[in-house]
Design a protein around this nucleic acid. Sequence first.
DNA 1: ATTGCTGCAAAGACTTTGCAGTTGA
DNA 2: TCAACTGCAAAGTCTTTGCAGCAAT
Lengths: 136, 136
Amino acid sequence: MSSHKLKEAGLKVTLPRVKVLEAMESLVGSHVSAEDVYKLLLENKTDIGLATIYRILNQFEEVGILTRHNFDGAVARFELKSSNHHDHMICTNSGEIIEFTDPIIEARQKEIAREKGYELLGHSLVLHVKRTGSPA
Amino acid sequence: MSSHKLKEAGLKVTLPRVKVLEAMESLVGSHVSAEDVYKLLLENKTDIGLATIYRILNQFEEVGILTRHNFDGAVARFELKSSNHHDHMICTNSGEIIEFTDPIIEARQKEIAREKGYELLGHSLVLHVKRTGSPA
DNA sequence: ATTGCTGCAAAGACTTTGCAGTTGA
DNA sequence: TCAACTGCAAAGTCTTTGCAGCAAT
């Protein structure tokens, strides 16, 4: 249940927060903007102010419920933080976002940071791609 | 000479463009915002409108003179495109930006895209790091 | 002489904030 | 009850644009 997750995170359980969390849970695998969440909730007859959505999304990020992406530099996109970390590939034609993981890259990143005298805290990797003739 | 680079790129050689290009050339290795360029030019007694700087920076990116980064999702940062591609590491404490290259990661990226049926056009990789006890 | 470029100020997109009223524990 | 939360509208930040005048070929 969503409310439990909120309490765990130290957030008061309020209707807007529950609704936003439910929306994000129903959207696992998507990468949505504040506006997207707002519209989705409206469709479900839940009218929560856009400002509140922004506030809640930020809080959720702070407590680690979700991850923020700035793929293009324009709108921020969010996705529920899943147990399995992954990176993204964006098709320049369709705008489609494909997720992937690669242990080799992950390992190298840690190593590179260490080599330079740093500790890796996180990373952001986005591949910009286009479809080729040969399918997946 | 800067003006030659502009002609090559198909851009009319104008004072603002030459000044911005010179500024970027004097800043190799930095990652500056439009505002940064604006202020730097002002210090050098060159008063070019901020809107013009934005326009020029965009044009320079289009013709491949420089690269745009959206490290944090806030301001866009630019750097002269150098012959040698590199990625970035940002220290969360100091904000310092360290450049690096890694052939293994580069190769994997290409492979991953291909495996999924895509062609790699470009990528954006940023490591978020913090200093450790052991120096570089 | 043209055509494109620049400056200014206004507008735009996205996001945050102040404040008064509401709600959850 | 009382602190925390929400909604609204206003404000903020970064960036783009319209338009009239200026400049490069």
